[in-house]
Computed example of a mutant assay.
Amino acid sequence: MTSSIRLRHLFAAVTLSCLSMSCFSAFASEFSQSYTAYKQAVAEKNSELALKYAGEAYELGSVQFGAKSLDTATLALNYATALEVQDQKEQANSLYLLALEVYQSSHGEDALEVLDPLIGAAQTSSNPKTARSLFEDAIDISSDAENRILHADTLSAAFTTLSKTRLYNRKIRNYALDGYEIYKEELPQDSLTRVKAAYIAGSIHFVEKKNSRAIPLLNEVVKQFSALNYTHPYELKAHAYLVELYEREGESDKSTEHCIAIGSMRPWLDDQEQVPLYRQPPEYPLSYVRRGKSGWAEVSFLVDELGFVKEPKILDSEGGSKFSDESIKALKQWRYAPKFVDGSPIAAETRVRMEFTIERKR
């Protein structure tokens, strides 16, 4: 990003300036050592050391360049990023805002250079409305840039942060969908950024029950992640979503391959309880509702090699036989990931307890 490029230039300028004046003081040397250690920590992806040396370089740079200099603001941006990685958002936010003020003063409020501190300040703000305002400014700036990937990155960052707040609405939802459309046009199919964006777009359509839009997106996610030599959490979740999507469409044969895929990815334990990937709640017997009856039914059954429920049997129940009947009827529609042993799916017994409860008005 912009900050890392600027910092490399900053370091070269400081070194050349001091050498030309023969004034490489002990103080300047200490800054140089801290900044070099910071760059090394970043290269080695050592977040704890990056935080330590980013802090040291910022404190030393503040004295050497001045608290309001552009160089110090760039060091503040680095320090803020390291703090954010360690989830120290309050302190990071203060530094992002400091850097933002200096960047806007030096480059102009609508300059591309202000995007890094602007987005950083938005991501670390404790006030959702402030975060939304900052992101809107960032999106306005990135939309005018020639770099469409940069705009998609900004939209995605805004969605990731704001979708977790009470402000989530259709506009924020569209940030993710619009970002994905750009990635789809600009990036190859196997780009991890594009695949992750496809997963998010597919998840949005899944929640909104737009099956025909969700299915191709999530299948693309599964296809791309299947080429990896490790299991990505998005791949597992995409398979799980596809199980439910195909069951919604009444296409159990298509959901089966995803049940099996999930089962093959899991490290199964002998006593591990199987968790349903798709479930239909049992119907509450109308006659029992009228009478205010509550109860439960405990059922054992086999999950076969394809993830279907077989041979359900009532182990115990309370409240009436209709609870048992409805429990079995519902369970026959459930889907599971089959258990794997030595690389092959097997039938395995499990059990569930169905609760039927009527909340009484006080």
Results as ranks from 00 to 15, higher is better:
residue 301 F to K: 01
residue 249 E to D: 09
residue 305 E to T: 13
residue 192 L to C: 05
residue 12 A to R: 09
residue 329 K to P: 02
residue 142 S to Q: 05
residue 342 D to I: 10
residue 180 Y to L: 08
residue 268 W to S: 03
residue 10 L to S: 00
residue 250 G to M: 09
residue 341 V to S: 13
residue 344 S to E: 15
residue 316 D to N: 09
residue 279 R to H: 12
residue 123 Q to C: 11
residue 260 I to V: 15
residue 314 I to L: 14
residue 100 L to A: 09
residue 168 Y to H: 08
residue 293 K to Y: 09
residue 201 A to T: 10
residue 74 T to V: 10
residue 104 Q to E: 14
residue 223 K to P: 02
residue 265 M to P: 02
residue 17 S to H: 06
residue 283 E to H: 04
residue 3 S to L: 13
residue 199 Y to N: 03
residue 178 D to M: 12
residue 179 G to I: 11
residue 93 N to M: 09
residue 282 P to F: 06
residue 113 E to K: 14
residue 32 S to H: 02
residue 290 R to L: 11
residue 75 L to T: 00
residue 50 A to Q: 09
residue 355 E to S: 11
residue 105 S to H: 12
residue 98 L to Q: 14
residue 170 R to H: 10
residue 137 D to V: 08
residue 112 L to G: 07
residue 184 K to G: 00
residue 362 R to I: 12
residue 160 T to D: 12
residue 207 V to G: 08
residue 112 L to R: 15
residue 166 R to N: 09
residue 139 I to V: 06
residue 355 E to Y: 04
residue 185 E to D: 12
residue 270 D to H: 08
residue 251 E to I: 14
residue 288 Y to R: 05
residue 196 K to N: 09
residue 150 L to Q: 14
residue 212 S to R: 03
residue 199 Y to K: 03
residue 32 S to T: 00
residue 9 H to N: 15
residue 210 K to W: 11
residue 168 Y to T: 12
residue 222 V to K: 03
residue 204 I to E: 02
residue 184 K to A: 02
residue 92 A to L: 11
residue 113 E to V: 11
residue 266 R to M: 09
residue 50 A to H: 07
residue 216 P to F: 00
residue 116 D to R: 05
residue 324 S to N: 09
residue 317 S to E: 07
residue 87 D to E: 15
residue 261 A to L: 05
residue 148 R to A: 05
residue 345 P to G: 05
residue 219 N to A: 11
residue 21 M to N: 07
residue 304 D to C: 10
residue 128 P to E: 08
residue 218 L to S: 05
residue 145 A to C: 13
residue 225 F to L: 15
residue 270 D to Y: 08
residue 34 S to P: 03
residue 216 P to E: 08
residue 190 D to I: 04
residue 328 I to D: 03
residue 250 G to L: 06
residue 197 A to R: 06
residue 233 P to E: 15
residue 15 T to F: 04
residue 234 Y to P: 02
residue 317 S to H: 10
residue 49 L to K: 14
residue 148 R to C: 01
residue 270 D to W: 07
residue 172 I to M: 00
residue 258 H to I: 01
residue 182 I to A: 01
residue 315 L to K: 14
residue 135 F to V: 06
residue 171 K to P: 02
residue 95 L to Q: 04
residue 102 V to M: 13
residue 346 I to P: 02
residue 90 E to M: 14
residue 274 Q to G: 06
residue 207 V to F: 14
residue 64 Q to W: 03
residue 102 V to A: 09
residue 348 A to R: 12
residue 60 L to C: 00
residue 55 G to P: 07
residue 77 L to S: 11
residue 116 D to W: 07
residue 33 Q to C: 01
residue 265 M to D: 04
residue 247 E to Y: 04
residue 60 L to M: 01
residue 235 E to P: 02
residue 303 V to L: 00
residue 2 T to V: 12
residue 303 V to Q: 01
residue 284 Y to T: 08
residue 149 I to Q: 04
residue 271 D to N: 09
residue 100 L to V: 10
residue 63 V to S: 01
residue 166 R to C: 06
residue 354 M to W: 13
residue 333 Q to C: 04
residue 89 K to E: 01
residue 114 V to G: 04
residue 356 F to I: 01
residue 167 L to C: 11
